Simulated assay, not measured.
Amino acid sequence: MNWPTVIYNEEVMREGFGIEDVGITLDAKVAFLDALSETGLKRITVGAFVSPLFVPQMGCFEEMLRKFRPKEGVTYLTFIHNQKAKKLAEQYSPPLTIEEEFCTLFLDICDVHQRRNVNRSVEQMMDSWPEVIQNAKERGISKARIGIGSAWGSNFMGKFSQSYRFSFLERQMGLLNAAGITVFEIGLHDSQSWCLPHEMEEDLKQIKRLWPEVKQFNLHMHNARGMALPAIYTALRTLDSDDTVIIEGTLGGIGGGQFGGNGRASGMAATEDVIHMLEGMGISTGVDLDKVIDCVWMLEKIIGRAGFGHVAKAGPRPMNPDAFYDPNMPGVESLEAVKHFKLGPKAYEKEGYSPWKHPISGPYYQGPRESKND
């Protein structure tokens, strides 16, 4: 199958640590970011220039930028939400990369979440768009990104219809087209974890019917209800080979917003699970999954609990004889013993029991053999 081009953006430093314990030390964050940089991930959002009054977890952000070790070939990004943030980012470039500037119109279409998040209503946000567009034109910006948050529904207002969410995309598109600014990207953010896979398919098909010129999509998928990975897979199946999709997720699937009602349980698509799926589908990522798993285990020690992802717990599918499980290992029950996939037999030394009297053999198993595709 001809898949779309995939750009993966790692958000754990901003989206993840942005809701974790404010007491996590600067040294821990720096060590973690240094390890993360060695995994082969090419794009890492490392934080945001925001007031520590509202997001105290970002209070050490600038010091972290001065202390970590940038890896050549890795693009380090920050969330640039206004001109003040842009000017601060420019002071730290490098290591930060300031990407091409576009006119960006974004709106959380849940009026309650919009107000709780930024103290501005949906109407107030839309009223600001003409000024945003005019400012972009004066600076010679000719391309734009549009997007909506809480796209599929709200914990405060319920399920949103397709016509409701598209009314906001159509308004954004109309204003920009009238100003002579070309929209090249559409973002769909599941801020409150309401998306279901069939809705993702229907919406992407509708976007392509209405605006076939748009070839880039941004998916920011929270995972409070376990639908992030199925929705991402559906997007990959729905988009064309000449499309590009930016997928945003976090190591361990941690993250979430303080104002949606699900807190840390919001989570996100877990990086280790997404990378495992992409590679299994034949979409090369250049990411070393073994190093990613190391980073997930490191992250879990830092936050003091298990992440939400699966591959760092059960391991990737063993695809060659060297990775196949020993058929004569004891019964495995604990999560610590499961780490044998990476740590070897020492992981299950104290585990379970071995009820069989003789080593397992027979016509279907004669020792490790080359795996074959069906």
Rank of each mutant, 00 (worst) to 15 (best):
M1C: 10
G18K: 00
R171P: 00
G282Y: 03
K137S: 15
V112P: 02
R43C: 06
L36Q: 09
I109V: 14
P316Y: 04
V292W: 00
T45G: 05
L219D: 11
D34P: 02
P359H: 04
M58E: 15
A28C: 10
Q216V: 11
K84G: 09
W3G: 03
S371K: 06
E100V: 03
D21M: 07
I133V: 15
G249V: 09
P321G: 08
S163P: 03
P4Y: 09
L41P: 01
P363M: 06
V332P: 05
F49E: 01
D294V: 04
D203V: 05
L33T: 00
A265Q: 09
V122A: 06
Q216N: 13
E100N: 13
G18H: 07
N218G: 12
I181K: 07
P230N: 07
M200P: 00
G158S: 08
D190A: 15
G47A: 03
D27V: 09
W3D: 00
A235G: 04
G304D: 04
L343A: 14
F106H: 07
K84Y: 13
N9V: 15
G73S: 10
M268A: 07
W3Y: 15
E202G: 00
A231G: 01
R139S: 14
G47W: 05
H198D: 09
E333T: 12
R145E: 13
E20M: 15
L299V: 04
S284P: 05
L107C: 14
F184K: 03
F106G: 14
Q192Y: 01
S284C: 07
I360M: 10
Q57N: 09
A178K: 11
G73M: 10
K159S: 08
G174A: 10
N9Y: 12
E63L: 03
Q162I: 08
S193Q: 02
G252Y: 08
G153S: 07
Q206V: 06
A178W: 00
G18I: 01
E99Q: 15
A270D: 08
M221A: 01
P316F: 06
E213N: 09
P330F: 02
L343S: 12
E62D: 07
I232S: 02
G187K: 01
P316H: 09
R369A: 13
F168M: 05
C60N: 11
E201V: 12
G59W: 09
L107I: 15
L251T: 03
Y325A: 14
N9K: 13
R209N: 10
E213D: 12
R305L: 05
N177S: 08
K215A: 10
G226L: 09
N218C: 14
S193E: 03
A228F: 10
Q91N: 13
Y76I: 08
P355I: 12
M58D: 14
V46H: 04
Y164P: 04
A48G: 05
C195Q: 08
D240M: 05
I133M: 04
V287L: 02
